[in-house]
Design a protein around this nucleic acid. Structure first.
Length: 289
DNA sequence: AGCCAGGCACCGC
DNA sequence: GCGGTGCATGGC
């Protein structure tokens, strides 16, 4: 048993950043609230404790580790003030969402973890998605350490999931998503899809490849593009976004294709940021329900 | 109890 | 191409 003590501290002041909002806006799943504005986070095969007190963000690591891993993960070097200004000028609805969710940053996450996590996400609610990802990590991932009697495991790599069977996955209660996960593992392990090569391709080419995986359609592919490949002009369109866009912008009965088209034209190169502000705000306020 | 959840595949037209 | 339906499971 490896006890994590989180004794190190590195503090930083960051504008336009809120820890709770960035974790709970729905883009990531492996966070644990351990107190007011304090979380344990599993990412990059590491576990870290982060707390946000007034203006200070406190990371339980030294400066070198912060700069090597977490600065990038939390996207802390980007000028969100400029992005928010641009989007706020566009319309009043978005401005309200941005004002309430002013501290959201788009995390730089791992493509494989995003792919599997969002395959699991279909017709599930966030608490249950989190649990499925936990169970996958527990069964197939590498043990990292304990903190307060809880064991933390890294998200399993494609190699670690190589021999996973549909029956095993169904025993973990992933349901009909089991065949999708097996297909994703096989395509990545057989090099039919190389997730690192995808980084260098166009949005369209990445999507085309991701959608060859069973159970991956436009929405899940777009989540991987936005949350793992930093494609900020992409606008994942799910049931919440559909409700919000119909409520605010289109009024008429719509469909997901029309919403994609509208978002691309209307929000432009910052569509992905707009999506997160609107999604989080809309879900939090049960807009359109 | 029955409906719905960060979708998608499959089917009919 | 477009809309309808089934899919596992859990929460309300």
């Amino acid at each position: 048993m490896n006890s994590l003590n989180f004794n190190e501290e590195f503090m930083i002041t960051v504008p336009d950043f809120d820890l709770k909002q960035s974790l709970e806006c729905g883009q990531c799943f492996r966070y644990y609230n351990i107190g007011p504005n304090a979380y344990v986070i599993v990412a990059n095969k590491r576990v870290i404790k982060v707390a946000h007190e007034q203006e200070q963000v406190i990371f339980s690591c030294d400066e070198a580790e912060f700069k090597a891993h977490w600065l990038h993960y939390f996207d802390l070097e980007r000028d969100y003030g400029a992005i928010k200004q641009h989007l706020s000028n566009q319309d009043a609805y978005l401005k309200v969402a941005i004002t309430e969710k002013q501290g959201v940053r788009l995390l730089q996450q791992d493509p494989w973890e995003m792919l599997i996590s969002f395959i699991l996400s279909q017709t599930k609610q966030i608490p249950h998605i989190k649990k499925l990802i936990e169970d996958l990590s527990l069964h197939y991932g590498t043990y990292i350490g304990h903190y307060q009697d809880q064991a933390f495991y890294a998200f399993p790599t494609p190699e670690q999931m190589e021999s996973v069977t549909e029956a095993e996955l169904r025993a973990l209660k992933v349901g009909f998503r089991a065949t999708y996960i097996v297909d994703a593992v096989q395509k990545v392990r057989n090099n039919l899809i190389d997730l690192e090569t995808l980084r260098t391709l166009s949005n369209e080419d990445i999507k085309k490849q991701l959608k060859t995986i069973k159970g991956v359609g436009d929405k899940i592919a777009d989540c991987v593009l936005l949350f793992a490949y930093s494609r900020y002009d992409v606008f994942p369109a799910d049931v919440w976004i559909k409700r919000i866009i119909e409520h605010y912008y289109l009024l008429e009965n719509s469909n997901l294709n029309k919403i994609q088209e509208f978002a691309k034209n209307y929000f432009g190169i910052y569509a992905g940021f707009a999506q997160q502000y609107l999604f989080y705000y809309g879900r939090d306020n049960k807009l359109g329900k």
